[in-house]
Amino acid sequence: MSIKEKEEEIVDEFAIYSDWMEKYEYIIELGKDLPLIDEKYKVEEKLIKGCQSQVWLHAEKEGDVMKFTADSDAIITKGIIALLIRVLNNESPADVAKADLAFLQEIGLQEHLSPTRANGLVSMVKKMKMEAIQNA
C-alpha cells in the first residue's frame, strides 16, 4: 500500500467518529497498542525533547524500506506516533522524505503537529525525514 493509500484508509477510519471524544478514545487505544520501542533505544541520543511531552525515535533501513519505532511519555502523542509510523513504515526513503502527511489535517489532528504544542512531534517528523534522506 502506498503512503497515500494508507492515509486514505486512516481518514476513512476516522470518518465514523462524529465526536471529538470518540476520536480521542481511538487515538488513546492506538497509543496503548503501539509496539514498544526496544528499551535499548530509549536513550538520550534517541530522545526528542518537547516542552510538553517527549518522544524517542529509532529509525533504520531494512532492505529498501525505512523502519521506525518510537515511544512517548504522553499517550495522545503516542497515538499520533502510531498513525505516523503506520503511514511511513515500510516505505522507501524517497517516499518518506516527500510525504506531506496531509491526512492529519483531514482528521483534525494537525494541531498536535504545530510547533507551539511543543510536544516533540514536529521534531519527530523532521527527524524521520532526515533519517530517510540519510538512508536514501
Binding site: 510538553q52 499517550i75 498536535h112
Partner: peptide, 8 residues
C-alpha cells in the same frame, strides 16, 4: 501525563 489531560 499533563499533556494528555490538557488536550482532552
Amino acid at each position: 501525563h499533563p499533556y494528555d489531560v490538557g488536550s482532552l
